[in-house]
């Protein structure tokens, strides 16, 4: 579902590349943890995979058609993200001006799922993340854990091929983090989706199928 090959990135005024010639593959349904020290380039790698930053060299092939996001223009990258990628962020990033159900259905709108299916699919996801009855609530009235559940539901609602998660439990207390983590892994496995999870948390990393460690010398 995700194949990275020969990926290199150097920041404009940096003396050495952030990473070079990275290569790895994540199979369908596989959950991979990406660990590494701060500043090593984990988030940049995630951004490159999502097409939010440009790589200097290499290829990143995503989804069933193995489209190389590096070669796509901005519009095509946006379309690929809408169709095949789901995101979970450390800072939740839930739209404060939309209610919970509307937040979850945003990816459905973006990838053109018929409007008739929105309510049912959103409802199913709300139940699966333990937020049944929260659809009409506004984000401001939710706790951090609940907001992250909304983000997980939103990441999964359009059944993407790949989930990219950047420190998904970083802003949560240990108990809530555990609950959210279990939920995320459970739902990802249930949907047979691939996932790449950037984390500093060893317990989280241990729960994944595989761990990739990014160091200044490359992936290990």
């Amino acid at each position: 579902m995700l194949t990275v090959s020969g990926l290199s990135k150097r920041h404009p005024r940096a003396s050495r590349p952030l990473f070079s010639a990275l290569a790895f593959h994540i199979a369908a349904g596989e959950i991979v943890a990406l660990v590494g020290e701060s500043g090593v380039g984990k988030s940049t790698l995630l951004n490159c995979i999502a097409g939010l930053e440009s790589a200097d060299r290499g290829a990143i092939c995503i989804g069933p058609q193995a489209l190389d996001i590096v070669r796509l223009d901005e519009t095509a990258r946006a379309a690929l993200r809408a169709q095949h990628i789901g995101f979970v962020f450390q800072a939740f990033h839930v739209l404060p001006t939309l209610n919970v159900a509307q937040n979850i259905s945003v990816p459905l709108l973006l990838c053109g799922v018929p409007a008739g299916e929105h309510a049912s699919r959103t409802q199913v996801l709300l139940e699966r993340v333990g937020l049944a009855g929260f659809g009409e609530r506004w984000p401001a009235s939710l706790s951090g854990g609940e907001l992250q559940r909304v983000a997980i539901a939103r990441a999964l609602v359009h059944q993407p091929a790949l989930i990219l998660a950047d420190e998904p439990t970083g802003n949560l207390d240990p108990r809530t983090a555990g609950e959210v983590l279990s939920l995320l892994l459970e739902r990802v496995r249930e949907q047979q989706t691939s996932a790449l999870i950037v984390t500093h948390s060893q317990p989280l990393a241990q729960c994944c199928d595989r761990i990739l460690a990014l160091t200044p010398d490359g992936l290990q």
Binding site: A50, L52, E74, T75, A78, A79, L80, R81, A82, Q83, I85, F87, H93, L95, P96, T97, V106, P107, L110, C111, R154
Partner: peptide, 16 residues
């Protein structure tokens, strides 16, 4: 800007 960036990340094209 953060909200628009999020929508961009979720797949809202620059044109949109």
């Amino acid at each position: 800007s953060t909200q628009f960036a999020l929508l961009g990340v979720l797949g809202l094209s620059p044109r949109m």
